[in-house]
Each structure stands twice: as C-alpha cells, then as structure tokens.
Amino acid sequence: MDKLLHIEKMSHSFGGLQAVQNFSLEIGAGEIVGLIGPNGAGKTTVFNLITGVYKPVSGRVMLRGRDIAGEQPHTIASLGIGRTFQNLLLWRHMNVLDHVKIAHYSQVTYGLAGAFFGTPRRNRQEREIEQTSMELLKRFRVDHFALLPVGSLPYGAQRRVEIARAMATRPRLLLLDEPTAGMTPDELKEMIGIIKGIHADYGVAILLIEHRMKFVMELCSRIVTLVFGEIIAEGAPMEIRNNPKVIEAYLGREDIT
C-alpha cells in the first residue's frame, strides 16, 4: 500500500502477438526508474497500458492502492499520472503558454458566467494559472518562447514544453518516453539538470524509457530491462550494465558455431 504504483502480472497482446507478458513493477513515491530494452520490446506499450490507452488483457495496475487497469485515460491522468510521447504530442499551432494553461483545466472552478462577465474569481484564477504556468516555463527554460506557436520551436525546446505541460497537471508519477530522442549533447546535459530539478522540487516519481545509457545511468536508481515483452533483468544501474542477459539482448550472442 505504501507503493505509489504497483503493477502485478500485467499482460497484453495484439491479435496473436504477445506484446507484454507478466509485467510486474513497483515504483515508490519519488523514485526514478528506467525502462530500457531493444526496439519493439514493448516499452511504449507498457506506458499505454498504465495510462489507459490500452486495457491490459490480464493483471492489475494499482495506483496508490486503487486498481486503474481499464480506466479511461482522462481519469488516470486526473488521478496523478502524467506522460510525454516519443514523437511529441503537441498542439503545433497553439502557443507555448496556452499548452501549459490548458493543463490546469481540472483546477479551474469558475463557470460560464465567470468567463462571460469576467468575475473577480475568474480573473484571480486566470492570473494564478498564468503565473504558475510562466514559472513552470521558466523552469524548463522555454519562457522566452511563451507566445510562439510550439511548432516553430527548436526540437529540444518542444520536448521541454511537453514535459512542462505534463508537470502542470501536478502528477505524482511522470512517464517520459525517450525524453532525449533527437537532442544534441548540450540539450541532453540540460535535460538531465531539468529532470533532477523537478524531481528534487516536486518529489515526483519518474518512469522513463531511454536509449542513451549515460542518461539512464545518471538519473535512475533502478533499471528494468524489457525484451520481447518480458522483464529479463531488474536492478541497480551498475548491475544492469554488467548483466550478461542484457548485453546479449542489446548486442546479440557470440555464437561461434
């Protein structure tokens, strides 16, 4: 019960393809866990199962003691799981500030009358939302882009906007799908700093899919390796790095026959 997320024997298949098999994982509050594995191992499917895009065929997904398997994505989001996407899911022509403001949707309490007549309550809430949104943008170093359409930003900045939007929903668990894909080494370094920063300040737990070992090694306290939908190894970064099964999955077996 003290675990934030507790996944028990979660399985899923697409037609005949067993995409995820008996996946079990525990994440404590404020922990950073890495999910690695070769292409097609089912990492993104695990994210989609946790966030309700797919309903697991079997198994349980417990979030703070409540089974969320099969719940609607918007329900799961409002229960405290935020995520980003490998290919960025941004509203390209909407400006950066509006992205983060929309993420405050569930915190808005003024109604129609408030919006139409500009009641003090609306003005106060809008001001607060704008202020917290700008603070968040500053933290992700995209505040100077606030009024530009997201599509016009450099790639690395777009990734940061996506994480900022996810953080604006105040999640307890943040799922990051390859947050450094396509980034330059400098942007990578910046991203490590940002993630460490939000982790320290908000105490949010993070589960991240990543291919760059440097990134995973530096951030994660624990790493899970997924191959063909099954966990083949789990442990501290150094253990995983030297695990022969993991090396085999990534580099192939040395068959001399």
Partner: peptide
C-alpha cells in the same frame, strides 16, 4: 475564454493529447 472552449481548441489540434489533461473526449 472558457475552459471548455480551450479544451475544444486543444482537441481540434490533437485529440490524443486531450485526455492527458484530465479532459474526456
């Protein structure tokens, strides 16, 4: 100005990202 209007605009940009904000399509 309303939050629903904003959700409508967001949905017209990309419906997949809308549920992440806790808004149901």
């Amino acid at each position: 100005k309303t939050k629903w209007g904003m959700a409508m605009r967001a949905m017209s940009y990309d419906p997949l990202a809308v549920p992440l904000m806790g808004v149901s399509v």
